[in-house]
Amino acid sequence: MRYTAKKPAINPPSEQLRASIPGWGVDLDPSDRPSVPRERFDLGATGAHWNFPERQPEKWPRERSIEHEILTPVFGTAQPPRGLSGAIRKLAYARYSEARAAHWLLLVLADRVDAIEHHALSVFSLHPDNPITETGIKSEITANGIASRFGKGRTDVVHHPLDPLIVVGPWVVAGVLAFRGARALSRLRDRRSPA
């Protein structure tokens, strides 16, 4: 245990490392490191030939962080917000800054609603969700699922059983709720029907 000023001699000498490891020390001088200094003003380095980029057409009211004063000149157009999940996302962007937990938690909620919306709609499509193929579970057989996990001292094996619950759990909850709802409606109808 070191309680004196001298640095402990716990490393091989540099000469030995230079001889044994290809390229040892070639970036020893910080000036050879491309991100040193961290900030280096050089507008000519990027290949850009504009001061401010031409603006991409906005084809629908693009949601944006309220911390941006304007819509950025370029943006992604994948998956515009739709349905209830879209409404939640628009609220998260319109109401809360990135500093607020509500902003992110609403977006996470919207993600879950989005998945439920699409799973439900897929049932009525020509391409319904298939939890077998979409989870890639076949690789448990083709890629040595058991041998890869056990007897290897892996700590993550403990929580792997939670993964199927995360995938199947919402379907089970939705099924139970649907069953209870249908049963409640049926009872209500029976009560209103004349004996």
Binding site: S35, R38, E39, R40, F41, D42, L43, A45, T46, F52, P53, R62, E63, R64, S65, E67, H68, L71, T72, P73, V74, F75, Y93, E98
Partner: peptide
């Protein structure tokens, strides 16, 4: 302009 290409301000409207 300062080499922080991962932090560009002109490409991500969803977050700063």
């Amino acid at each position: 302009a300062r080499g922080l290409y991962a932090n560009c301000h002109n490409v991500n409207p969803n977050a700063t």
